[in-house]
Write a protein that binds this DNA or RNA. Structure first.
Lengths: 340, 340
DNA sequence: TTGAAAGCGGTACCAA
DNA sequence: TTGGTACCGCTTTCAA
């Protein structure tokens, strides 16, 4: 019988909130049971070197008294922790939420819990926030960063740091870094369009880092000549894509890559309303792999972030706490669906 | 000169990651400075009872050695913590994210940091997760819960618990509870519609708890007779509202309340496309106070969640750690904009 | 003005 | 199979 089985059998108090005050300690249990702390410890940890009779006895006492180990004390003694800090920016959008949610789930599988903090406005505040976590948190994952030198702000803080997809961070900054290569998946997408015979390819949106992948695809394509057209917009939301519909069709494009799935969605709606056939009349690709894309008509081809790979790596780093900083780049990948 | 000013001046190491291993302790500093731990403590805490010379000296040493206080140790000693647990469900939507984000910001203002955990699938797992937080977390805010008796799952855990808007939790369960009264804002909205002369009012959606407010408004209205019509849908997303447009207009309604802002948005789009004038032909009210509603054409009237009130109360409870459980209900409120 | 020392709650080495 | 005890790092009382 494990401790918690016993525990649940024994506990039948009524005024539960009164219990908050008393979290029994090993010492109290040892006194109650008339044994040493060490013996209680052995019993609860299911270690060897203790008679079954004593163990049963102690388990009962512990259960009756409502023992819950104090993790702060344990961590202090073991000089480690099962918490991971996550620093995020204040303007979170869908894709970011999916990323951090996935990370949270993976961390929990490995026995870690995320402590979240918002990126403060000044480096001093960031520093003092991270100091507050000293001793509780061995690893801090930063999803956002300011225009500061990491080495100035973070120097001598007792945690390891992992910068995730922070553009401001220089390559060899001395901290772990996880970068996302947006161009790889975009390149594959455009290449697919080119190779399937599309010749007037539009990229539409206003997000700078999307351009590179398109360039790469055109440079490496060895087929008949194809034209590359850029249609910039003011935003990257549904309605931007929708509103672009007219311009797009007037441009005689036969394929379009949108900087976000939401724009692509907007355009799909436009196409549907106007009787434009996708992908027959025009092929459509988005970016972000929003789950909704599976359910559009036709389902939306897109470029997916390496969420799983990225986050498993973060979990690994949290577990190993390896000293040497590494910079890893994960590629995005093209997902072909009905819209191309 | 405070410690951190000095600190930043002194620190100029190159291989930052090597520093992770060494978080100087009070003892190390006291040895280095040739004073007692207590004196170092006084200097760093800017307490009185220490000569200025010694203070300067110690600050310098501490800065040079890279002192960061260990919060685990501090919390252990002070028997308190500056972390607050937040348990959330796995299917988060917009409004939930806004709520928890707001809470996070408020907590940080008061010196707390959120530790997040996902609601586990079994009560045993929930319990063991919360045990993992013992000693680090004094307060746990639960935004989600299962079909379990709180008193069975949580008994004798050393934290205080705050259930937020969990429908399954009975009124007097012995734990803090924060409930949201959805009917109050809805009632005001419908009443406004009735009083401004609307006589065929549709409620559209499939979310059960929205009905009560509508009922209340009709019951308390003492004007000319008005008709209450329900149009149910399969969902509560943009497209559901959009798709309802036709039915809605055929019903000759002159006002409509949607269960979500997203549905209302969808309908506004329909109306815009069809040349239906809002609010002249039909008044529209949504629910959730999504920020986007400010930017629709016309701007969307809606019912707002009591996010600020709710979360300030949670922060207060976290600070006071008052023993007696309280159950508070916060009303939602009607926000009038152009669409009515 | 300074310092010794007793905790906070667990862990684990070393003796008995 | 047991128990005594020295930590982990910090706070604070009390005495010098």
């Amino acid at each position: 019988m494990t401790f918690y089985t016993m525990y649940n059998k024994c506990q039948r108090w009524r005024e539960y909130w009164k219990v908050i005050k008393m979290a029994a300690t090993l010492k109290q249990i040892s006194e109650e049971a008339g044994v040493s702390i060490r013996t209680v410890n052995r019993a609860l940890k299911e270690q060897t070197g203790i008679s079954d009779v004593k163990r049963q006895e102690i388990l009962e006492v512990a259960a009756r008294m409502g023992y819950i180990p104090n993790i702060a004390a344990r961590n202090l003694r073991l000089r480690k922790s099962n918490f991971v800090g996550i620093v995020t920016g204040t303007n979170e959008n869908d894709i970011f939420i999916r990323k951090s949610h996935d990370l949270q789930q993976r961390l929990e599988v490995h026995g870690f819990f995320p402590i979240s903090g918002l990126l403060q406005t000044s480096p001093e505040m960031v520093r003092s926030m991270l100091s507050e976590w000293a001793g509780m948190v061995d690893t801090v994952v930063l999803f956002a960063w300011g225009e500061w030198l990491p080495e100035d702000v973070l120097v001598s803080l007792p945690q390891q740091f992992i910068f995730v997809d922070c553009k401001q961070i220089p390559r060899n900054c001395g901290f772990h870094q996880i970068k996302i290569d947006r161009s790889s998946g975009i390149k594959d997408a455009i290449l697919f369009l080119l190779e399937s015979g599309r010749s007037r390819i539009v990229r539409s949106g206003n997000i700078g880092d999307r351009a590179e992948g398109v360039e790469k695809a055109f440079r490496s394509f060895r087929g008949e000549s194809a034209e590359k057209i850029l249609i910039e917009t003011g935003g990257s939301e549904f309605e931007d894509g929708y509103n672009l519909g007219k311009t797009l069709m007037e441009s005689k494009a036969d394929a379009v890559f949108f900087d976000t799935d939401r724009m692509a969605f907007g355009f799909l709606k436009y196409a549907w309303e106007k009787g434009i056939r996708v992908p027959d009349d025009i092929a459509v690709v988005g970016f972000d792999d929003d789950p909704w894309g599976n359910y559009s008509c036709p389902s939306l081809s897109t470029v997916a972030h390496p969420i799983a790979e990225m986050n498993s790596r973060i979990v690994e780093l949290s577990e190993r706490r390896s000293a040497a900083p590494e910079a890893i780049i994960f590629p995005t990948r093209f997902i072909k669906r009905q819209s191309v």
